[in-house]
Amino acid sequence: MTGDVAVLGAGMHPWGKWGRSFVEYGTAAARTALADAGLDWRDVTSVVGADTVRGGYPGYVAGATFAKALGWQGARVTSVYAACASGAQAVSTARTQILAGLADVVLVVGADAAPKGFFRPAGGDRPDDPDWLRFRVLGATNPAYFGLYARRRMALHGDTLEDFARVKVKNAAAGTLNPNARYRKTVSAEEVAASAVVADPLRLLDICATSDGGAALVLTSMEFARRRGVRDPVRIRAVSTVTPTYPTTVPDLPDIATDSAAGAEPQGPGFRASIARAAYEEAGIGPEDLSLAEVYDLSTALELQWYEDLGLCDAGEGAKLLRDGATALGGRIPVNVSGGLASFGEAVPAQAIAQVCELTWQLRGAAGDRQVEGARVGVTANQGLFGHGSSVVAVR
Score class of each variant (00 low, 15 high):
201 P>W: 09
201 P>T: 11
201 P>D: 10
202 L>I: 05
202 L>C: 02
202 L>A: 00
203 R>K: 12
203 R>M: 04
204 L>N: 04
211 S>K: 03
211 S>I: 04
212 D>Y: 11
212 D>T: 08
213 G>Q: 07
214 G>M: 06
214 G>K: 02
214 G>Y: 10
215 A>S: 15
215 A>D: 02
215 A>Y: 10
215 A>V: 10
216 A>G: 09
216 A>D: 01
218 V>K: 10
218 V>I: 15
218 V>E: 00
220 T>A: 07
220 T>K: 03
221 S>P: 04
221 S>A: 06
222 M>W: 08
224 F>A: 04
224 F>I: 01
225 A>F: 02
226 R>M: 09
227 R>W: 10
228 R>I: 10
229 G>L: 11
230 V>C: 10
231 R>C: 03
232 D>Q: 15
232 D>F: 13
232 D>A: 15
233 P>T: 14
233 P>H: 13
236 I>K: 05
236 I>W: 03
236 I>F: 07
236 I>S: 01
238 A>P: 07
238 A>D: 04
238 A>Y: 06
239 V>E: 03
239 V>I: 14
239 V>L: 09
240 S>Q: 06
240 S>C: 04
240 S>E: 00
241 T>M: 06
241 T>A: 11
242 V>S: 04
242 V>T: 14
243 T>N: 01
243 T>W: 02
248 T>C: 04
248 T>D: 05
248 T>L: 05
250 V>A: 13
250 V>C: 02
253 L>A: 12
253 L>H: 08
253 L>I: 14
254 P>H: 08
256 I>K: 14
256 I>V: 15
256 I>D: 11
257 A>I: 13
258 T>R: 13
258 T>S: 15
258 T>N: 09
260 S>G: 12
261 A>Y: 03
262 A>T: 11
263 G>D: 03
264 A>K: 15
266 P>V: 14
267 Q>F: 10
267 Q>L: 12
268 G>M: 14
269 P>S: 13
269 P>W: 13
270 G>Y: 09
270 G>L: 02
271 F>L: 05
271 F>S: 04
273 A>W: 12
273 A>G: 15
274 S>L: 13
274 S>H: 14
274 S>N: 14
274 S>M: 12
275 I>S: 00
275 I>D: 00
275 I>G: 00
275 I>P: 02
276 A>L: 10
277 R>T: 08
279 A>R: 07
279 A>G: 02
280 Y>G: 02
280 Y>V: 09
280 Y>P: 02
281 E>K: 07
282 E>F: 11
283 A>D: 00
283 A>P: 01
283 A>T: 06
283 A>Q: 06
284 G>Q: 02
286 G>Q: 07
286 G>Y: 10
287 P>T: 07
287 P>I: 07
288 E>C: 05
288 E>M: 07
290 L>I: 04
291 S>T: 08
291 S>F: 07
292 L>T: 04
294 E>T: 09
294 E>R: 05
295 V>H: 06
295 V>I: 10
296 Y>F: 10
296 Y>E: 00
297 D>Q: 07
297 D>I: 08
297 D>L: 08
297 D>H: 08
298 L>N: 01
298 L>A: 11
299 S>Q: 05
299 S>F: 09
300 T>E: 05
302 L>Y: 02
302 L>W: 02
304 L>T: 07
305 Q>K: 07
305 Q>E: 15
307 Y>H: 09
307 Y>Q: 04
308 E>A: 11
